[in-house]
Amino acid sequence: MSSPLGALFGRKFATRWLIGLSAVSILAGSQISLAQSLLNVSYDPTRELYREINTAFTAQWTQKTGQALTIKQSHGGSGAQARAIIDGIDADVATLALAGDIDAIAERTTLLPKTWKTRLPENSAPYTSTIVFLVRKGNPKGIKDWGDLARPGVSVITPNPKTSGGARWNYLAAWAWAQNAYKDDKQVRAFIAALLGNVPVLDTGARGSTTTFAQRGLGDVLISWENEAFLVFDEFGKDNFEIVAPSLSILAEPSVALLDGNVDRKGTRAAAQAYLEFLYTPKAQAIIAKNHYRPRYPEHANPADIAILPKLSFVTVDRDFGGWTKAHKDHFADGGSFDQLYKPSR
């Protein structure tokens, strides 16, 4: 066999494979075993936020300790990410969309105590956010408030509340508005059912929904994280979209937690703890505001970043829905209100 293929596959092929294999494994091995490394398992829209936070924190950490540090990120729907942590992804910190998902981790594993929420300031939520509407420029469907989303002929994009934290906030915000407006459980349910009937695509994560709406041009209105809506401005230009602030929204508290079981095994507790505490520092709070989240301490942020956020009135999960455990059971667990009301006819 004198052809090139013959040479590749002649008698020496085994040796060549072995040499190639060991070369590749050395490459991959060297890349996996870096000095100290943290893994932050987070929800969908925080990609841009943590990219900036991580750069700031690693620089500060190296300056302070002389230790090299890399922070790895994993993003996905909040529920999906909690599942990955429960199934054993080697995360040092969980930064998820809602306390309920971290509660689920505490319930199903021994990675962190059930009292995790009290270990950091502000309910372990270094920033808040809320839910707004993103519509196409000129608001052709005239969408002003939640009531408009249930109108026939309006196409609504929102992710699946079973897997997406953002979608759960969306759902509860809509529910709270309807309760306020109708004061009658039957009408609330009819409204939610009509709204869900207007949803043509149910992505598994908030990011998927934003892509569907902004990039794929589907739907008249996106029920969105506030920060995600502003990100669409940054990514796709302000000429194509408008933000509509509903009359009532929900105060979303995305929570962060140290996963004790993992950091103690990996020996990364000090760095991981410092990382979470860093989120409350003036520097991080400014980065948080810059990425269009609502910082806990707005005095540290650039006032311009705060000024563009719409003024809204809020309900909260703890006050209006009896906390996440109850809200989850009432609405999102199997057989909850979402399962009862989501019966697409098409």
Binding site: N160, V199, V201, T204, P344, R346
Partner: peptide, 9 residues
């Protein structure tokens, strides 16, 4: 797919 339960899931 669109991933809508009962329709395109």
């Amino acid at each position: 797919a669109g991933n809508v339960p009962m329709v395109s899931e």
